[in-house]
Computed example of a mutant assay.
Amino acid sequence: MKTYNSNHAWKELNELLPEKFKMKADNLPVEEVWTWNGNQIHLDRYPNPDAEYRIFLHHGVGTNGRQLNMIFGHKMAELGYDVVAMDNLGYGMTEVNQKDITYDSWVHCFADFVNMETKRDPKKAVLYGLSAGGMICYNAACFIDNLSGIIGMCFLKNDDKVVGKRTAKYGSTNWIAFPIMNFFNSLGFKRLKIPMKAVSKMNYLTNNDRALKIFLNDPASAKADVQMQFLYEYMSYKLPIPVNEFDKCPILLTQPMEDKWTPLELSERSMKGIKAPFTIKHLDGAGHYPMEEKGLEQLIEYSDSFIRSLAK
C-alpha cells in the first residue's frame, strides 16, 4: 500500500499552515485501502465509533485527501466527528489498475464508497468537497441512498459554458478546444494524459506563494495528469438530478472571499433555483485552498454549526 510517508509535499504544506491547524505527528489519520473495480483506493481516516455523523471528504483536481484532512478533517475529528478522506483515481496515494478513467468513474467511485460505508456502519453521512470536489459531492449524492447534508467550497455546473470560460486556463478558446478533444477521443486518443495544471487556473489554487510552488510540483495533487476523456467529460457532465429537482439534503456553501479561481457568482449561477435548503457562508480573507487562519476557523465553525442543525 502506498502511504503518505513517501510524499513530502503535504509535510511542507503543513508547516505553512497556522500553528493551530498544523497536523501533529501524534494525530495523523489512519491510512487504509478500499478495493474498487480492481483499484486500490487510498483512504485517510479519523475513526470515531461513538460519533453520530461521518464526514466524507473529496478533493478537487489540484488537491488530495491528505490535504483536505490538513485544513478540515483533523479539526472536525477533534470536535467528535468520524472523518474519512478519499483519494480518487489518479490522485494522492491511490493505485489505479483500470485503463479508462472518466469523470463518471470519480462520481460513482465516491458514491459507491459512501453507500458501502453507511451500510457497514450506519452513521449519518455528510459530504465535504473542496473546489471541483464540491460538484463531485453533488453529483455523487444523486446516487447515494442515505445522506444528511453536503458542504462545499464551491459548486460549479460542469457543462455551463460561462463557468467553463471563467475557470479554464485559456477559457476564451473553449469553443474550439472542446470539439477538438471530442475528435481526438473518437480517434482513440481518449487515454492521452494531459497535465491538469496546463488547462486549469492552477496558479490560483492558493494565495500563499510558497505553498503554490509546492502544490505545482506535487504529482499527487496539482501536478497530476488526467486522461483526455476525463477532461472532456469533466467539462460536459450533465447533472444526474437538475438543481431545481434536487431535494435530497440541505447544502452549505463555504465560499472563500479571496478566491481568484472560483468566485461566489459562479456557484450562485450553478445552483440558482435549487430545491434543497441552500446556505452560503463567507470565509473572510481566504483563498481557493484556504490557508488563512480566520478563514479556516470560520470553515470549521460554520461546518460544525451546519451539521448540528441537521439533527434539529
Rank of each mutant, 00 (worst) to 15 (best):
Leu43Gln: 09
Phe21Asp: 13
Val126Asp: 09
Cys109Thr: 07
Pro290Leu: 10
Glu258Ala: 03
Val162Pro: 03
Tyr204Trp: 07
Pro122Val: 13
Leu17Cys: 12
Glu297Lys: 09
Asn39Ala: 02
Ser270Lys: 03
Val84Leu: 01
Tyr103Gly: 09
Asn185Cys: 08
Ile151Asn: 10
Thr254Trp: 01
Lys20Met: 14
Ser221Ile: 03
Ser148Glu: 14
Ser148Asp: 14
Trp261Ile: 11
Gln227Lys: 02
Gly92Thr: 11
Thr94Ser: 08
Thr35Glu: 14
Thr63Ala: 06
Asp225Ser: 07
Leu187Ser: 12
Ala168Pro: 03
Gln298Ala: 15
Lys213Thr: 11
Val84Glu: 02
Asn207Phe: 08
Ser309His: 00
Ala168Phe: 08
Pro240Ile: 08
Glu265Thr: 13
Leu43Pro: 11
Glu297His: 01
Ser270Gly: 08
Ala140Val: 05
Phe189His: 06
Pro179Tyr: 10
Asn37Val: 09
Val96Arg: 06
Tyr81Asp: 04
Ala141Arg: 03
Asp159Asn: 12
Gly273Gln: 04
Phe306Arg: 01
Lys260Phe: 14
Ser200His: 14
Pro256Thr: 06
Ile176Gln: 09
Ile274Glu: 06
Ala85Thr: 05
Ile241Gln: 11
Arg210Leu: 07
Ala276Ser: 15
Ser303Met: 07
Glu19Thr: 15
Met228Thr: 03
Gln229Arg: 15
Leu127Tyr: 04
Tyr302Gly: 10
Val107Thr: 03
His282Ser: 09
Asp159Phe: 03
Ile307Met: 00
Trp175Lys: 10
Glu293Ala: 08
Met235Ser: 11
Lys20Phe: 05
Trp10Thr: 07
